[in-house]
C-alpha cells in the first residue's frame, strides 16, 4: 500500500467509515503481530498487544500526523505497550510455541504454522531469537524480518545508527550460531521420533 492510498484509507477511517478502519487494520496487523510475537515469543501476548495497539490508534486517529508513516506510529505504540507489559509482568517464553518439535505438545488449538517442516524452522529461529538480548532481537527482527532501514530503526529505538549496526552485527553472528544449534537439535529429535 503506497502512502497516498494509505492516507485516503486513514481519512476515511477518521470520518467514521468502519470498513476503512477494518482495511487499515488488516493491512498492518500481520507485520505488527509478527514483530510482537518475535519479541515476546508468546502468541497470546502478541494478540493482546496488537489489539490494544490498534484500539489506541483508532481512538487517536484524528491526531495522526500525515508527515510520518502510519506503520511507524503503530509500531511505536505497540512497542510501548509491549515494554509496559514486560515491565509489569515479564511473559515467560511459551514452550508450547517451540514445543512442536518431536510432534508432541504442539499448539493443537491454533496452529501458528501450516507446514511441519516450516514449524520446526520457526521454532528454532524463535528459540534462537529469545536467547539474544532485547536490543539485538528487536533490531534483527525489524531489519531482517520487517525490512526496516537502519535509519528508521535508529529513529524508532532512539539510538545512533552506529549502535544499531553494532547490535545488528553481533546479534546476527550470535543468531547464526544459535539457530544452527537449534536446527541440529531439531533434526536429531525428528530422527529419534521417526
Amino acid at each position: 500500500m503506497d502512502r497516498n492510498e494509505e492516507r485516503a484509507l486513514i481519512e476515511r477511517a477518521i470520518a467514521g467509515e468502519r470498513t476503512a478502519a477494518g482495511d487499515l487494520i488488516r493491512a498492518h496487523q500481520r507485520s505488527v503481530y509478527a514483530y510482537i510475537l518475535r519479541m515476546s515469543g508468546r502468541p497470546d501476548v502478541a494478540e493482546d498487544i496488537v489489539q490494544e495497539a490498534f484500539v489506541r490508534v483508532l481512538g487517536n486517529l484524528h491526531r495522526f500526523d500525515f508527515r510520518f508513516r502510519f506503520s511507524t506510529w503503530l509500531f511505536t505504540i505497540a512497542r510501548r505497550l509491549y515494554m509496559n507489559a514486560m515491565a509489569k509482568n515479564r511473559p515467560a517464553y511459551d514452550t508450547d510455541f517451540v514445543g512442536s518439535m518431536g510432534n508432541s505438545g504442539g499448539p493443537a488449538e491454533q496452529p501458528i504454522y501450516s507446514d511441519e517442516r516450516q514449524s520446526v524452522q520457526h521454532d528454532a529461529i524463535q528459540s534462537a531469537l529469545m536467547s539474544l538480548s532485547e536490543e539485538q532481537r528487536e533490531i534483527i527482527v525489524l531489519f531482517h524480518q520487517l525490512d526496516w532501514p537502519i535509519s528508521l530503526i535508529a529513529s524508532h529505538l532512539d539510538m545512533p545508527e552506529g549502535t544499531i549496526k553494532s547490535h545488528l552485527h553481533r546479534g546476527r553472528k550470535r543468531l547464526r550460531v544459535l539457530f544452527k544449534d537449534q536446527s541440529t537439535l531439531a533434526q536429531k529429535l525428528e530422527g529419534v521420533a521417526r
Partner: peptide, 14 residues
C-alpha cells in the same frame, strides 16, 4: 537463519 526469520507467520484476523 535470516530465511527462517523471514518465513511468513500466520496472523489471526483481529
Amino acid at each position: 537463519a535470516i530465511n527462517a526469520l523471514r518465513m511468513p507467520i500466520e496472523s489471526p484476523d483481529l
